[in-house]
Amino acid sequence: MIRPADYDFFARFLKERSGLILTDDKHYLLESRLIPLLNRFAIPDFARLAEILKSNEAPIIAEAVVEAMTTNESLFFRDKVPFEDMARSLLPALCAARLKTHTLRIWCAAASTGQEPYSIAMMLAEKPELTGGRRVQIIGTDISSEVLERARAGRYNQFEVQRGLSVQQLLKYFVKSGDWWEVVPQLKAMIEYRKFNLLDPFGGLGTFDLIMCRNVLIYFDVPTKADILARMSRQLAPDGFLQLGGAETAIGICDAFRPLPDHRGTYVHTRAPATIVAARR
């Protein structure tokens, strides 16, 4: 059981460290995610865990708490539509407006265990015509170093590789390694993973042609969402695209973006021209 005062402390701690909003009805979530951590560090109860975090005596435990609470399910080609839109109209529009020498930069802002960046890499490896020979740099960031380690290793269990991937993709882009399926080096080489907190300044990341920030804004309160989106708009090329998750929106939160018609979850700069992508046939 978590005492109300401790719950309030955990909520404040998580908001401050990661921006995560823990509403009053998330006792179950907090308990289910943190009980394994209590066992791992031999901490007797939540009251003691709160004391440890307050005293700042064990930064490794503080980091583990943030990681345990911010790690979420990830699937290859999750929701399918964003990847289809990327192939059908977003990448062609970006390429049409860029020289052959331009390096296309794509940011997966909540890369988690790597399925999203690997899905993009797989799509580009399968259809090199999408980028017309341009170099592509995929940056995958996440607040959790534990999930990034998994992403870098590119190792997945059989349940993970059976969701979203065709058998042909499995055979082409993975090798069996014991009980695991490991992404081939060709795809790994296309992605750079960096530990990064979305509450920190984005300046060092550079400018991107496409930003995927999916299924992470839902964990933030409105002012934090607005701040992240406004800062993202400054990292996005004037004709670039932002893709949000199915349950997320920029409408009414940040006026730097407007939705791209006929492309669910895709946003462009408010001042981007109406003809930014070719009309869908």
Binding site: Q158, Q162, R163, S166, V167, L170, L171, K176
Partner: peptide, 29 residues
């Protein structure tokens, strides 16, 4: 669940491959 078996099934005309154990989500997909 090894690559040789999967590749062999695909080469003989299997359209997809499910590794046991599986769940309803995998079969649906």
């Amino acid at each position: 669940n090894d690559m040789e078996h999967i590749a062999r099934a695909v080469s003989l005309g299997a359209d997809e491959y499910i590794m046991k154990p599986f769940d309803s989500e995998i079969l649906r997909e």
